[in-house]
Nucleic acid binder design. Sequence first.
DNA 1: TAAAAATACTCCATAGGTATTTTAT
DNA 2: ATAAAATACCTATGGAGTATTTTTA
Lengths: 328, 328
Amino acid sequence: MLTLRQLQYLDALARHGHFGRAAQECAVSQPALSMQIHELERVLGAVLVEHCQGATVLTEIGAEVARRAGAIMRATRDLTDCACSGGRLLGGSVRLGVIPTLAPYVLPRVLPELHRQHPDLRLDLLETQTNTLLTRLAHGLLDVVLLALPIDKLELETLTLFDDRFLLAVPAGDPLPERSRVTTRDVNARKLILLEEGHCLRDQALIYCARLSDADSNLGATSLTTIMQMVASGYGVTLLPEVAIDAEVRDDRVKLLRFVEPQPKRSIGLAWRSTSPRKADFMALGEMVVEALKVQGAKSASASHLRDVEARHAAPTNSPAKVRTSVT
Amino acid sequence: MLTLRQLQYLDALARHGHFGRAAQECAVSQPALSMQIHELERVLGAVLVEHCQGATVLTEIGAEVARRAGAIMRATRDLTDCACSGGRLLGGSVRLGVIPTLAPYVLPRVLPELHRQHPDLRLDLLETQTNTLLTRLAHGLLDVVLLALPIDKLELETLTLFDDRFLLAVPAGDPLPERSRVTTRDVNARKLILLEEGHCLRDQALIYCARLSDADSNLGATSLTTIMQMVASGYGVTLLPEVAIDAEVRDDRVKLLRFVEPQPKRSIGLAWRSTSPRKADFMALGEMVVEALKVQGAKSASASHLRDVEARHAAPTNSPAKVRTSVT
DNA sequence: TAAAAATACTCCATAGGTATTTTAT
DNA sequence: ATAAAATACCTATGGAGTATTTTTA
């Protein structure tokens, strides 16, 4: 008899290419997984896995079966999700992925309210870069991700939440006057510090600055916090997203300058597999994010660091009431 | 732990609305199925089935889960199919449905050659009317069906095989001359005998004759054989499809008359779930059907009953070389 | 020699069967 | 009263763990 467990093990084996690690992911012993794979081969009457030059590799038919097994595993997860939530909005559990340039700024504002409104929701969080998030999402290891749009995956549905404008962060001693509007030229005349390869924020900044790659790549860093410290110390300038202002502008050693129109920005939104039965959950989650940022933005607008920026700087650009879903 | 078996039982239960009959289909005892359903409810933490006024009925959430369970069962069957066939054309097993007005005429011509070319193919046959066939196909209880096209199911793929023209079968004593071409008028001037409700052939004949319903419904029958006996005995006339000529015209008590152009006909083809991994198999099967009918048709053309009909009367109208697949 | 997968063997969870009881028309 | 589903109890299959062997680079 074919079992879901066998398909689960094969799915894991296909992703890891290694019996031991696949077993680890499935939280079983290696012989247990090994046995189930063999039983699966017996049931199907086909060889699924081979050992070429020491590596564990799937046969052609094994790969096709694994692909289908993955789809079935995702379908079963959707089934349990749709049953466990029991019609309640945001019941059960949600596995949420967030990019590193959003997580530290958005999550602290959203999670408390989320927990208050949905105390029985179990939230599993993963913070990593867009590519990894999308892979995990496709594999069914995540339910929904919060990242910069657009993304060009046909099998995903996306919900745009708000626009996040970039500001130019310069050392306090920079000659540019405090309230002036800056341009690409101003950026290119200075040393630009960016996140390392793989962060979408880096790519977005480079596109705006019309550079193919960063000339000052030796000044890269792995977190916005570090980059802002470098700016504060006078090593260069950077493009800082509005959501990060409250957390990253801590003293008077940096100035924030608005760009001339059209201001550079990134669109922030949610993405999930279009087969997911929890679209309503995710849209509710999206609204909570928008609401949380609006409140927080209004509060901090009266605060210190942005004398020349209009109120509610981190608030959503488009109204949360008319969030729209687009199938990309 | 959620198991495929539980989903299989729920799928069966949803279709039968009855624990005992569902258990019968699954070839297990009623308590066994009952237990698995309860275990499934425990695992999902949701009530799936209720007992309203003596009948077993699924809850709203139960119906949704059952729908997804059905999809998963079909996906697993596709998985095993794609593995079992092991890349070979028409390996493993195929569950074929055929409408009653084709099965007795097409199958005897196709099955011997099919068995010769694919001796290890296991073929499960079901002969019943179009509606039932399509339901079973959608439920994953059949792999492919042979019937009259077109059908308007979005989730099915179809392959047109050949056109099957209708001829007017009249008693030998009918005044119409032997080689004359007949029209709708000739039919309407006579007593028309048709299959009972539900047969697509009946509907096709009624459309051609421009009648909303059959006035002589008391002369209905459940098989073409019976109807031809009635025609031979002088009770009326009927529209006989070409494929049935060899089998149903056994003596000189009936005459077959061609219609004037455009001759009434039905299109015969195959249909399968578009998610099926065996499209290649089905197209090969389709070609075999076309080939088998061509050979047989050529042979019987020289035979007795159709002096005024051109050779290869039962041969496909369109070439088997350019069979085309249309997603309807 | 080392790492990875297969094998051996034991234990226990659980699916399934039969018999029976409960429940609802 | 009857039919259907739930419960009780027993059996046996098989999945998982630990320990060990085999295989291959």
